[in-house]
Amino acid sequence: MTRRGFYFDSERCVGCKTCMVACKKKNNLPTGAFFRRVTSYEVGEFPVATMYHWSRTCNHCANPACVRACPTAAMYRDEEDGTVQHNDDTCIGCGSCAIACPYDVPILLKETGMAAKCNGCIDTRPEDGVPTCVAACGMRALDFGTFEELSERHPEASNQLACMPDAGITDPTVFIDARECAFDPNYRELVL
């Protein structure tokens, strides 16, 4: 089974959200809608406190909860590309995918009445080489590739930060390098 997904280097990320905006613009998303999101967390006490960020989108899971929940198979694994894709023609806008995904990835767009999410830039990747967010990141903190490629390029990476849902639920195709503080269970979410 081909698996493709994202790598995220939390050590390099400055939480600037350029990936979020680049993605939103590429996908022409309306107000309030984002396919990629960045959230920030604080650990420690003054004066040795610090923070880290988590930039996330669809994890293109091997065992995707959204696909399992979709009654019309609109959400499906593209076996050739190794990503999870969405078929607008069969989507009934029921929102089951959005409820099922532990990572809150699919969203319902009121403008279209359908679910929508990251497609791994399957439309522009042939032309651009990589997804838009990867090419956009000024900190070179994102990468995209097959499971094998990412395992080789980022051998220390984890799929589980303290702030993330249990990776056992969906077997996410996600690779994250992070400082120790990102594994500290005593984190507080920041509003920036």
Partner: peptide, 23 residues
């Protein structure tokens, strides 16, 4: 939506498809 660009027709056409980009 922030993607609709007012009254200049060029701006409107730019934002036709929500959720996808064209090569």
């Amino acid at each position: 939506p922030a993607t609709l660009y007012g009254c200049d027709s060029r701006m409107q056409e730019a934002a036709e498809v929500i959720g996808h980009a064209s090569p």
